[in-house]
Write a protein that binds this DNA or RNA. Structure first.
Length: 475
RNA sequence: GGCGGGAUGGCCGAGUGGCUUAGGCAAGGGCCUGCAAAGCCCUGUACGCGGGUUCGAUUCCCGCUCCCGCCUCCA
């Protein structure tokens, strides 16, 4: 069974055929680091992380490039507002972004290039476009360089727009353009911008336009042609359309497959700083949600569907994840480490069908149910089998509770010792409780259980004796 | 105005021309338990509205309503 992925260019789910057998190159439009990322940005990160893990499962060697836009109008504007250097602002937010990704278990990309680190690549691409007659210097010598949309007949193919039907941008530079729809490859330095936000070039001092960096960096790390290009649906036009125009007009094959994730809305609108409806990762953590639960929430709906954020919905997702996690913990206590087994075919089929994670997770729940029944029946063979399957599936979604980063690393800390101490204390109390239960002194038994609960420890009885866990929010 | 996506049971969320019509959360009933927790079993009977195609449509076609996104910075 082969992987089928929806391709925005053809508007169909197509079989994924790598350019080179066994290898996949992916370019994902990352984030402009003008501010702290919100969970909408992070959703995109999680979606493509699942894709990447799945490609790895299918045996591909994945080169995953996710860029950082560290200079653009907004970064500069904000740096002036805040009175900090634009590069300091960008780096500060880049660190927060990296931290958020790590918190949600998003694997680091193979490369994470920054726009400002690729000025030479950008300039040489612009040169090629000028040479080939697809770009020109701003009329009247304004120092900008524009892409000539009319020179590229395919323009509009991705977004299915026709140049003539587009609303012309009414920016101040329109008089310097041959056509109002032409877009800037290079932007001349303006005195209102930070003095250090400029590079000397044959066209005059300035900085790159937004779209050109992706064309330049994708080529730098993935070559003239590569497998998959991804980003949010809000990037289809103009950003990705312009990338295609730049790269293909320059003579490169560019992306063979276009993927776009759905957005995350809040209060009926797209989450965005300017609308003011943003929710941050830390907001959710302050709500008592654990990162793994947040990841589950973001990974559960199909990547192309819209998520309308709401607190009840994310809490519900947390409860659903806990059900899975409960099984994994219990089963692990019973049978311990399991050897990886083949994944359920329904799971594989769902993932191969344009990454149908809701269906795939339904399979996880099905196996969890069987596993719970096996646990109740004391059928360790079946428990072991179910656990291996569940953990295998969860691992590909980045949700295995027994895998990093969800298990705490106690190496070199005293936490391990602390745990051992708690273990001894709880065990001793539980022994007293068992003695009380044995003599049918339930008042004492219940008092001991309540005492532990007060301390944040939940006790459950089973035919195999009591079991304890840390209560939710025991901190 | 142009281009796209969507409306599924109390809620979240897949999916399908008919067959026992995902999965989860919540709810009710049962089992298990000293009680509880966890778990297992059972129950609900949904596809925005109006037409059409069809033996049969939630699923295909047409129209309508409403929502979201893009066309300006945007994952």
């Amino acid at each position: 069974m082969s992987l089928r992925l929806y391709d925005t260019l053809t508007r169909t789910a197509r079989e994924f055929v790598p350019r080179e057998p066994g290898k996949v190159g992916i370019y994902l439009c990352g984030v402009t680091v003008q501010a702290e990322p919100h969970i909408g940005h992070l959703r995109s990160g999680v979606s493509y992380d699942v894709l990447r893990r799945w490609l790895g499962y299918l045996g591909y060697q994945v080169t995953f490039v996710r860029n950082i836009t560290d200079i653009d109008d907004r970064v500069l504007a904000r740096s002036i507002d805040e009175g900090v250097p634009w590069w300091a602002l960008a780096y500060h937010n880049e660190r927060i972004l990296a931290d958020c990704y790590a918190t949600l278990g998003v694997l680091p990309p193979t490369y994470e290039p920054r726009a400002t680190g690729h000025i030479p690549e950008i300039l040489s691409l612009i040169d090629v476009l000028i040479e080939r007659g697809h770009a020109y210097r701003g009329l009247g010598g304004n120092g900008d360089v524009y892409f000539d949309v009319r020179s590229f007949p395919e323009y509009g193919a991705l977004s299915r727009q026709q140049v003539d039907h587009m609303q012309a941008a009414e920016d101040g530079e329109s008089r310097a353009k041959r056509d109002p729809r032409d877009f800037a490859l290079w932007k001349a330095y303006k005195p209102t911008e930070p003095a250090d936000a400029q590079w000397a070039t044959p066209y005059g001092p300035g900085r790159p336009g937004w779209h050109i960096e992706c064309s330049a960096m994708a080529r730098r790390y993935l070559g003239d042609e590569f497998d998959i290009h991804g980003g949010g649906v809000d990037l289809v036009f103009p950003h990705h359309e312009n990338e295609i125009a730049q790269s293909r007009a320059a003579g490169f094959g560019f992306a063979r497959h276009w993927m776009h994730n759905g957005l995350l809305n809040h209060a009926g609108e797209k989450m965005s700083k300017s609308i003011g409806n943003v929710v941050y990762l830390r907001t959710l953590i302050d709500l008592g949600l654990r990162p793994v639960e947040i990841r589950y929430y973001l990974a559960l709906p199909h990547y192309r569907s819209l998520i309308e954020y709401s607190e009840p919905a994310i809490r519900e997702a947390a409860a659903a994840y806990q059900r899975i996690e409960n099984f994994v913990q219990r089963a692990n206590e019973r049978v311990g480490q399991v050897t990886p087994t083949e994944l359920p075919p329904e799971f594989v089929a769902a993932m191969n069908d344009d990454l149908n994670t809701p269906k795939a997770i339904a399979v996880v729940h099905d196996v969890v149910r069987d596993g719970n029944a096996a646990l109740a029946d004391g059928d360790d063979t079946s428990v072991r089998e179910a656990l291996a399957k569940v953990r295998g599936m969860l691992d590909l979604l980045g949700l295995d509770p027994l895998q990093a980063p969800w298990v705490s690393d106690t190496r070199g800390s005293r936490e391990k010792e602390l745990r051992a101490v708690v273990e001894r204390l709880v065990t001793s109390t539980l022994e007293q409780r068992e003695q009380a239960r044995a003599r049918r002194d339930y008042a004492t038994a219940d008092a001991l259980r309540d005492q532990l609960k007060q301390a944040g420890i939940l006790v459950e009885d089973s035919p195999r004796g009591p079991r304890w866990t840390l209560a939710e929010g025991a901190m």
